[in-house]
Design a protein around this nucleic acid. Structure first.
Lengths: 137, 137
DNA sequence: CTTTCTGCAAACGATTTGCAGCAGC
DNA sequence: GCTGCTGCAAATCGTTTGCAGAAAG
């Protein structure tokens, strides 16, 4: 599956890339580059950056950038399912949170209305719930 | 009003800060530092960065960081009213879009449910509608 | 064999900071 | 007059890139 998406871009599924995908799949939240490197996967920092770019281009991985600067990566929603993020404004913690049916319907309606009035074609959305996590409270 | 919030932090309302707020107030979307400097307001780059940090700390300005790297600033919602962002994934354009009553209610309900199940105290949210703008389509 | 990957170290670029003089209060 | 503000130039730090050798197909 991942191999296929890479193949379509004449990119190879190497050991480094496999490990990156595994690490992201094991996490229940987006990871920063240093978190990824911190897992001692034994790949050079430059390779992490380069491979994440490749995986992003292949639609396997999604890049997200948060307020505390520091790019994070997660698997795309095709692989994990649609979800939103819970963000702690105190420590920067990010956690995945499933999207409810009702909420999705409301957002879709709002998006349709906005599309009509602005001429944008709306493809998807991002919702962050920002607050203070249990540990920081 | 702005002066008061600055005063509470023993910060002064200088000419540079006034101009920054005016520029942001005149825009109907978040601006990048270079867009701000591009308006030839005659303040040093370092002063722009420093003052925006001060204004952010005083609750006058809000910093947002988008996918195309490049920090942007806008006035806080206390000054502009609550709104969401329309983001063009092709050219990076960002536009403000008002939040509808119905949508806000749905988000509030989802937030309450999430707060209950995770222990987070949720203070606010951010919603980005991502798509392709009229010009890029 | 040819093309893509890799690690290393150097380059880059947006943002931050030290400093010495200027300006609010 | 003390404290905060300014511009300048230098420092920082995450990220990107050039290169020469290793690995995939």
């Amino acid at each position: 599956m991942v191999a296929r998406q890479l193949g379509a871009r004449r990119a190879r599924l190497t050991a480094n890339r496999t490990v990156l995908v595994e690490v992201l799949a094991a996490a229940d939240r987006p990871l920063t580059i240093s978190e990824i490197l911190g897992k001692r996967i034994g790949l050079a920092q430059s390779s992490a950056y380069r491979n994440l770019v490749v995986l992003e281009g292949a639609g396997v991985v999604r890049r997200i950038v948060t307020h505390d600067d520091h790019t994070r990566y997660e698997l795309t929603e095709e692989l994990t399912g649609h979800h939103h993020h819970l963000v702690c404004s105190s420590c920067g913690l990010i956690e995945d949170v499933p999207a409810s049916e009702a909420l999705e319907r409301s957002v879709a309606m709002a998006a349709a209305r906005t599309a009509r009035s602005t001429g944008f074609r709306i493809d998807h959305h991002r919702l962050d719930l920002v607050g203070v996590c249990e540990r920081c409270a």
